[in-house]
Nucleic acid binder design. Sequence first.
DNA 1: TGTGGACCTGGAAGC
DNA 2: ACGCACAGGTCCACG
Length: 361
Amino acid sequence: MPSHCPARVQKNGRVRLSEASSPKFETKRVTATNLGGPIDLDKTLLSGQVFHWTRRADGSWSGLLGNEAVVVSEKNENLVLHQGPDDRVVRHFALDHPLEEIYAAFPEEPMSQSALAACRGMRILRQPRWECTAAFITSSMKQVAHIRSMSLAIRSRFGEAVDGSDINAYPPFEVLAKATVPALRECGLGYRAENLLKTARLLADGTIDLEAIAKQPTARLRQTLQMLPGVGVKVANCILLFAYERLDAVPIDTWIHRILLAMRKGRKGTPAQLAAYAHRRLGPYAGYVQQYLFHHARMAKRGAALNPASVFSVPFDSHAPARLALRANLRWSISKAPAFSIVVKTAGCGATSPREARHQK
DNA sequence: TGTGGACCTGGAAGC
DNA sequence: ACGCACAGGTCCACG
């Protein structure tokens, strides 16, 4: 299993695109740099890994890498850099991840193959450790849109301005460690405020060093991360996958939980059993498979209400997967899918998956 | 080891 | 329009 990122760095012949060949940006007279690919930038930045990037009217994306403003776009499935440090951008967008090798390792299983077909080019980013940890501490019981708004509020209130960027840098933990619960609550964190503050203080006083622990093996690192307030097994797996390059880590959220149950034809299990199953079934790049399944299911949600069978557009011998992905439309599920109504119903009431995804200490 | 329930908040969504 | 349910969990108290 690849506990580290495969050290296969692409030799990107940096192609200088003439201004004439990138009409979108000619007014700014910037020199665009082709950083390579393939990558699907929209899917990568919309798949719930990062939360502060902004899509511009011309289709390019602006965001921050630490304290540096970055603007990128996609052209012919390649990543094009318009602003920012090219070496760090290449690394952040993980252009060295061997996608074809990863795809070859996807399970021969309908939902995984369907998700792959729908999400080709989506990459798992290499995120700054603290930012990623903080973002996912605030993520519990929250939708992507709100995680984003919390991130932006924290940046606005505690972060430093960045040249060439509309938004501030994410405040270092030393800064947040000096914040207060009420101040963080004003950023919309709710009960998460206390967790983020306590974590920032644990890092600030040196109890845990997010960089030093990077050399720990995955299982141990997961335990270490779970020492942080607000970090349970699911969030720990997100951090492992998105900030520590553990591409086999599988965060089991409500979506993945239901998908795993569908793969097991409804057979339930303890969180540990489901996690073990996920690793067995999803293979050495289970984290990648998980991300594709998650994004595909989420994106198909709206369409699912109209045409449930299209969620995973592959033939099924059972309707279960479509029903599971359809949970958004609870009424429909119950009326049309009696065989699965119990699973769908309880999950919809929040009585099943959050609990079953809970870790035990 | 396994379950029940509290916890903040607001964008999205259904009647 | 207003009210309730819900959303990418965690943590703690109990059987």
